[in-house]
């Protein structure tokens, strides 16, 4: 049996009296394009933060290609490329400098960094913006430069939290092509998203998260059960209970 790209066991995280992640078990097959979906506040970001070394779990283990992330971070973290959501970055660097920074942190030599930095800036349509401070970037450009930082050391597993959020359609197409090529080359992409159509289009596996638990997981066709993913998602997490009309919004 092949080693999962990411293996999560009994993962728990509490914030005061709130349980954000309540005992998650999940295996993500190597070479898959894995979608993680769930309603707002379901615990997706908390789970992915613990799965990438950003947030210490209260309980449980995370393995990256068989390496215990929290036990052996020096061996596990180089295997990961991470794009968190909602976190800013060192925005007083230019885009080019930020990619170089991420690459040098990963220990790459100068010439490799120079070549990869220029490749990534071109591939993500950021060549012109490479000399601009990241603080002047739009939200979409910031996502793209974050993705470049996650890719620069050629990781084996990419964990991307909402990678397409605020990205324009042209850039989204470029990102899709890059990620598809990455998976075709044997890499694994784990992507959280709220856009079901995007997950259905890109992913071959999916996990639906709700209330800090995995409600369903596996191959896309298996999870969606012959229906479309959005309908299945609503069935599992439940629809909005009080669907009242905001009549006061209508013009008289």
């Amino acid at each position: 049996m092949t080693v999962p790209a990411l293996s999560i066991r009994a993962l728990v995280k509490r914030f005061g009296e709130t349980t954000a992640v309540a005992g998650v078990d999940l295996d993500i097959p190597a070479g898959s394009f894995y979608g993680v979906v769930g309603p707002n506040g379901a615990g997706k970001t908390t789970m992915l933060s613990m799965a990438t070394g950003l947030l210490e779990p209260d309980h449980g283990t995370v393995s990256v290609l068989g390496v215990d992330l929290w036990g052996h971070p020096a061996q596990a973290k180089p295997l990961l490329g991470v794009l968190p959501d909602g976190l800013h970055t060192f925005d007083r660097l230019t885009g080019a400098e930020l990619i170089s920074y991420a690459a040098r942190l990963r220990g790459l030599d100068r010439e490799t960094v120079r070549a990869r930095r220029d490749d990534l800036l071109a591939a993500l349509d950021l060549a012109e913006a490479g000399s601009t401070l990241v603080m002047d970037y739009s939200a979409g450009m910031t996502k793209k430069i974050g993705l470049a930082c996650a890719l620069v050391h050629a990781p084996r597993v990419l964990v991307l939290d909402e990678p397409f959020e605020a990205v324009d359609p042209v850039s989204a197409g470029a990102i899709r092509r890059i990620l598809a090529a990455f998976v075709a080359g044997g890499g694994t992409v784990i992507m959280s998203s709220h856009v079901m159509a995007l997950v259905e289009r890109l992913c071959d596996h999916v996990a639906i998260v709700g209330d800090g638990r995995i409600l369903a997981s596996g191959p896309l066709a298996h999870v969606s059960g012959g229906s479309d993913l959005e309908r299945r998602f609503v069935e599992l997490v439940g629809d909005v209970q009080d669907q009242r009309d905001l009549t006061w919004l209508q013009r008289s």
Partner: peptide
């Protein structure tokens, strides 16, 4: 002082000393 960018240092390896 690096509260917003600290994540990049943390995810990049066991880099405390560096």
């Amino acid at each position: 002082f690096d509260s917003t960018g600290l994540w990049l240092d943390v995810v990049s390896g066991r880099l405390g000393s560096a």
